[in-house]
């Protein structure tokens, strides 16, 4: 297999994959630093983590993977020529993205109401930074999904849904590290 064949085997645009790998590396580095700092104060991190709403984060995981499923289905439907169904799936995926952001916003608001802010503990420094940065990607993904539901070229949908799956992929790594590892 030549280098060109190897690159052709990759589904979608190479540039989108470079973006995906870069983003996963950035979040992966953030999680590694988070876990490294945790070594210096495991009790403090555990106490801070107990203030998080694990159920809401669990619901958000289901919301995001269901949204990812709809995006993947939209891609398959569009490639099969079913444009209207594909558009419907893209809009539904975007709406679930909005649900994710709404739950995340409620989580942030509840922290603020309890007096928990950025510098309450170093744990919350990472919590707000990593989940906030992820939420910004979700917001960008929602806009992309709506845009490609409108301008529904096969390539556009393939790239936008790949971005959306990256957001999904990052969340399934971020969720256990920030919320679950006790």
């Amino acid at each position: 297999m030549t280098d060109k064949d190897a690159l052709d085997a990759l589904p979608g645009e190479l540039l989108m994959w470079i973006l995906i790998v870069s983003e996963v590396l950035v979040f992966g580095a953030g999680l590694i630093v988070f876990l490294s700092v945790r070594i210096t104060d495991p009790e403090g991190f555990a106490e801070a983590q107990d203030m998080l709403d694990r159920t809401a984060a669990g619901i958000n995981t289901i919301v995001l993977i269901t949204s990812g499923f709809l995006a993947a289905l939209a891609n398959a439907l569009r490639q099969g020529g079913a444009r209207t169904k594909a558009r419907f799936c893209l809009v539904a995926a975007a709406l679930l993205g909005v649900v994710f952001l709404w739950i995340k916003g409620a989580e942030f608001a509840s922290k603020a109401a309890s007096g928990i802010v950025w510098d309450t503990h170093v744990f919350f420094n990472f919590y707000f930074m990593l989940t906030g940065f992820h939420a910004a990607h979700v917001a960008a993904g929602v806009v992309l999904l709506v845009l490609v539901a409108w301008r529904d070229h096969v390539d556009n949908i393939e790239d936008a849904t790949a971005f959306w799956h990256m957001v999904d992929l990052i969340w399934v790594l971020l969720f256990p590290v920030i919320y679950l590892l006790q």
Binding site: R54, T55, G58, T61, I62, I65, F175, P176, L180, Q182
Partner: peptide, 9 residues
């Protein structure tokens, strides 16, 4: 995902 959340509880 249900498995992860159940483990956390």
């Amino acid at each position: 995902s249900f498995g992860s959340t159940a483990l956390s509880a």
